[in-house]
Write a protein that binds this DNA or RNA. Structure first.
Lengths: 324, 324
DNA sequence: CTGTTAGCGCATTCAC
DNA sequence: GTGAATGCGCTAACAG
């Protein structure tokens, strides 16, 4: 790789001039400019981003911390964010945290060490105190960390209520819930929404823990239907578990949605790969990623400050696991 | 962020000494070492990786070029590679190429500009000439670029033959194929395997193009079954299309596997989320990623050279869309 | 054992 | 308009 020095020598100018034409900054005669450009082409020169980062204290890289890219929710999100940041010349620094706070903090450090320009974080355990020392702009996705940290989320409680109400409106009598992990706040909100609706309607509550996972949810469904044979609807804490519930029903020979209705939460692709296709509360994943990225870029460029907390609406996608 | 200079001043030593304790390199008295360590702690110092990269010409970052992280095949792969590289202190630089050669080359440049230490590439269009100028170690995944570029792959042709033979052995008479894109070599190999087996057995050939996508494959299946009602088996060029084919059958009320058998290719998670679960030729995705990462790290550390071409075996996972 | 110094490649003053 | 000089934070000779 050629350096700016070599280009300067080749073009018979100083490195400062080369720098000027590269960055289109400051005055430079047209003649010398073309001379430099030719030199750049001739030597196949590319500016070294590491040296540039060192000087400017920014790297043109955006960091992402997600629990696990293997979880079908995140690829879409990462992709959305990337689509808007690459257009501005940023590249992607990806970190899988396994929902482990220690790893998250370790990665945050790595980012600081690399002059990462901004971070998008999906985390269930992080809070404002962990970000206090960090000089880097941050946008929280999927969960609000603190009023001082800008965020992009949905209203998990209200939208979960809507899911349950959809089942109620479809005439379901005995509605069960397969819940997500205890230590994930969104999962708890969705569960509480279910409980509250049932309470208000004076209906019995049937809850089984599914850990946000397909296999576990399938077993949870077996348990549920074994103990309580007349359950006629299930609201699962996420779509992955809805797939598990559906599989359980299929194995048990239960007709969905005629005998039992299912509604999920999230809007991931899996809901459309299975048959019957799963009714769900769809988060506008792509839009959310896009918005988070835009907010982050604005903050990086100093165009925007303060603490926006964007709450996106969801869409009830009525498909084939509910009757209407 | 504190710098090495500040630490040196705080500890009353030179920056060289600080550097020595950070890197555990060279001799340093125990006393001064503890003094430095205290200073580091007191100032909450973290070495700046950008400055370090500039000097050492390596960044402790591994680059990935994949067509699209949204494609369910890649998250597992990226994750596997990451698992072994993070353990060695590397971080992840992720690039989605959309299977677009121009983007791939652009990202390759970005990597060079950032002193990325090594690259894992999944690409259908890249070849040796594009990598010629690159100084960075590369491992190709999923496809062989050139004998000089180490690679980790499977034998697409032979394994696809095995898929078709499985259908034949199950007694299927009229076997169709839903093919992937024309310009993807693996897709072509799988198609050719199908054609060759049919030819050898003097069976008719039914091919419909599914572009590696679920929706398209679903339509392709509709077309196929409309034109040729007595098809009793489908081999799809990948699992995503197998899901599409299965959905088509479900909509048509065709009993899978009794009336029609389906076998896919790849071994992605989707094959286990649907009902019936899809029989497939499963690539050991995680193992492949792990192997590729290990090869890459060895090359980065100069431990290994030459051009390994690892071909992994696959596993025929007989599930519910075929009879045996 | 420890300190001084010279770059790594670039962007930015400040002279000219 | 352009060039020379300085420093971003760090590592690796080289002295001592």
């Amino acid at each position: 790789m050629a350096t700016i020095k070599e280009v300067a020598k080749y073009a018979n100018v100083s490195v400062a001039t080369v720098s000027r034409v590269i960055n289109k900054k400051g005055y430079v005669q047209k003649e010398t400019q073309t001379k430099v450009e030719e030199a750049i082409k001739a030597l196949n020169y590319r500016p070294n981003n590491v040296a540039r980062s060192l000087f400017k204290k920014q790297s043109k890289m955006i960091g992402y911390i997600v629990p696990d890219i293997t979880n079908p929710f995140f690829p879409q999100l990462v992709r959305a964010v990337e689509d808007v940041t690459v257009a501005q010349g940023y590249t992607t620094f990806l970190c899988n945290s396994d929902d482990n706070l220690e790893k998250e903090l370790m990665y945050l450090n790595k980012m600081a060490e690399n002059y990462i320009d901004g971070v998008i974080i999906v985390s269930n355990h992080m809070n404002e105190s962990h970000l206090a020392n960090l000089q880097i702009p941050v946008v929280a996705l999927d969960r609000v960390f603190h009023e001082s940290i800008p965020s992009v989320t949905i209203d998990n409680y209200q939208e979960a209520r809507r899911a349950v109400m959809h089942l109620v409106e479809n005439g379901c009598e005995k509605i069960a819930h397969i819940s997500g992990p205890e230590n994930i706040i969104n999962s708890q909100l969705r569960k509480k929404a279910y409980q509250d609706v049932m309470m208000a309607l004076e209906r019995p509550v049937y809850i089984s823990e599914g850990h946000y996972q397909m296999k576990t949810a399938q077993e949870a469904t077996f348990r549920l239907l074994h103990e309580q044979k007349d359950i006629d609807a299930i609201f699962t804490g996420n779509d992955v578990m809805a797939v598990g519930a559906l599989k359980a029903c299929t194995k048990l020979g239960i007709n969905v949605p005629k005998e039992l209705q299912i509604i999920g939460f999230d809007g991931i692709e899996w809901t459309e790969t299975v048959s019957p296709e799963i009714t769900t509360i769809a988060q506008p994943i792509y839009e959310m990623g896009k918005k988070a990225a835009t907010m982050l870029l604005n903050r990086i460029n100093g165009k925007e400050e303060g603490q926006d907390h964007i709450v996106f609406p969801t869409e009830l996608k009525i498909r084939e696991t509910t009757t209407h």
